[in-house]
Amino acid sequence: MTAADFPGIAPRVSRTAFTAAAARAAHLLVDTGPLIFSDTLAAVVLGDHAEELLAYHHLHGAHPVLAGARTQAVCRSRFTEDRLLRVNSGIDQYVILGAGLDSFAYRDTSARFRVFEVDRPATQAAKRELLERAGVAVPPSVTFVPVDFEADPLRERLVQSGLDPFRPVFVSWLGVTMYLTRKAILATLTVLGGLAPGSEIVADHLLPPELRDAAGNGYAEAVAPVAAEQGEPWQTFLSPAAMAGLLREAGFEAVEQAGQRESVDARLWDRTDALRPAALSALTHARIPERPGN
């Protein structure tokens, strides 16, 4: 699938924004349950592209690549939102890096969070167009933060957009690190490490080949060449220890790490459909510790 499959919009948006949303949407339509994650707006936001994208999952839902894509998408979303929404955390600022077609702000009815969606300007313009076409209103709690990640100062753009840097922030960074160099990952984490103590992050990362199982390596061998052909090559693979090390260097402490199997309740793997946990990627949840004297 190429940009030509999304006339008028896709040339401005990463292909992965569409395929990730399609994977979340397809989970509700293809998999028999129990549900791992319920993104009730994913298909709506895909709009005119939903039928074609979801047809792949309807017709070939048990294919290891498509089932693997759904597993990865729903596990990381469930893990992240469970930690974001836990009771009494005291955090009410939520930054979504590389927001793509993430729908949290349009599903959440708690009015608890001010959400900062960070992405390239073109991607945000396309998303807003898709939301408008779908009749989905942008709530006042949402702030779009347009950032050229290669040129713009992230912290400055966030503060200019209304983020309070003196209060804790929850950051999600999903489906992005594999496309960046290790140096670029550390640079972004270092900026985030300058946020207020008590701030948290959940980031996912692909495992190196030696830490993957057969299913994980099979998925990588099938998908990585396609991603490269689409102009989005995978560049960095990190072990949990390596990711924890980068976070520590940036000022965070890892508090939890999980593969796909451990990222959700074990009972969710008691299923009869094609979803199976693979050793392909991992999630790290980290926190900025209180500084001495605070």
Rank of each mutant, 00 (worst) to 15 (best):
86 R>D: 10
215 A>I: 04
128 R>Q: 15
108 D>Q: 05
264 V>W: 00
290 E>Q: 11
17 A>G: 02
184 A>S: 08
186 L>I: 13
70 R>F: 04
183 K>D: 14
161 S>I: 13
157 R>Q: 14
233 P>R: 11
181 T>V: 08
53 L>W: 02
11 P>R: 07
217 N>T: 08
174 L>V: 06
137 A>H: 06
99 A>Y: 02
294 N>C: 05
254 A>G: 07
20 A>V: 15
131 L>P: 00
210 E>R: 07
210 E>H: 13
178 M>F: 14
104 F>N: 01
19 T>H: 12
247 L>T: 09
13 V>T: 04
244 A>T: 13
242 A>P: 05
17 A>N: 02
103 S>V: 02
60 H>P: 05
222 A>D: 14
211 L>I: 06
74 V>L: 06
116 F>Q: 12
68 G>K: 05
106 Y>K: 01
248 R>Q: 13
182 R>S: 15
61 G>N: 01
135 G>R: 06
265 D>H: 09
196 A>M: 10
158 L>G: 03
34 P>K: 05
115 V>W: 02
183 K>H: 08
258 A>H: 01
172 S>T: 15
246 L>E: 04
94 Y>I: 14
239 S>D: 13
189 L>G: 02
288 I>H: 00
22 A>R: 03
160 Q>Y: 09
37 F>D: 00
34 P>C: 08
7 P>N: 14
278 A>I: 03
244 A>W: 02
1 M>V: 10
203 A>D: 05
59 L>G: 03
77 S>M: 11
124 Q>N: 10
284 T>P: 09
254 A>P: 07
72 Q>T: 10
104 F>G: 01
97 L>R: 02
93 Q>F: 12
287 R>Y: 05
233 P>W: 13
128 R>K: 12
208 P>V: 15
152 D>C: 08
199 S>C: 14
76 R>I: 06
135 G>A: 09
39 D>A: 05
240 P>N: 12
191 V>L: 08
91 I>S: 09
235 Q>L: 15
6 F>N: 01
119 D>Q: 06
189 L>T: 02
115 V>T: 15
252 F>E: 02
172 S>D: 14
79 F>D: 01
230 Q>A: 14
275 L>A: 02
289 P>S: 08
282 A>M: 11
198 G>N: 03
25 A>Y: 04
95 V>H: 06
242 A>Y: 04
114 R>V: 15
271 R>W: 00
216 G>A: 10
31 D>M: 04
133 R>G: 11
180 L>K: 06
183 K>G: 07
77 S>I: 07
287 R>M: 11
152 D>W: 05
153 P>S: 14
184 A>W: 03
110 S>V: 15
286 A>F: 01
216 G>E: 02
112 R>Q: 15
95 V>K: 04
3 A>H: 07
116 F>R: 09
4 A>N: 13
99 A>G: 12
94 Y>L: 15
223 V>D: 11
150 E>T: 11
109 T>Q: 15
138 V>K: 04
38 S>N: 11
291 R>Q: 14
46 L>Y: 10
126 A>Q: 01
76 R>M: 07
192 L>C: 07
